[in-house]
Amino acid sequence: MKTKRKTLMFTSILFMAAIWAFIFIEKGTNLFKGYDLIIFILIVVLGVIALLSAVKKDKDEKEGIPIEDELSDQIKYKAGYYAFFISMYMWLFIFLFKEKFPDLETLLGGGILVSAAIFYFSKLVVKNQFNAK
């Protein structure tokens, strides 16, 4: 299980590095302009969050602490519920202002990235405000 996780982490980092190398070669300095810059920042932020959480999970596993339990499941479900509704409104706004986006790829890619960011944010909010009734 530990080896599987480490292999998965290593493959993810390699995959992300390969994608970025390809984008840099394709776009060059144009990458740091307009929507591309926002998407670049979002990918980096989400990648760093994913990496940090993977490292923490790996550390916990080494110490014999379970990675998930009933509370983390509840937080995940609640955050997922909020993220779903917020994302629906976000997609509505994206389609209302679709002419502001340069192309369909930016619109869809950006929307998917923002949806992921909304889920992480919802998870943080739910975690901090979790209160049993």
Binding site: G64, I65, P66, D69, E70, L71, S72, F130, A132
Partner: peptide
């Protein structure tokens, strides 16, 4: 951490329980 390991949950869950912010399942 000892309690968390004994009942197979994360330490965070014990923190939430002690603060009264989380009601455990019957099993826990």
């Amino acid at each position: 951490l000892d309690v968390a390991k004994l009942v197979d949950v994360r330490r965070e869950t014990i923190v939430f329980l002690e603060k009264g912010k989380y009601n455990p399942s019957l099993r826990l």
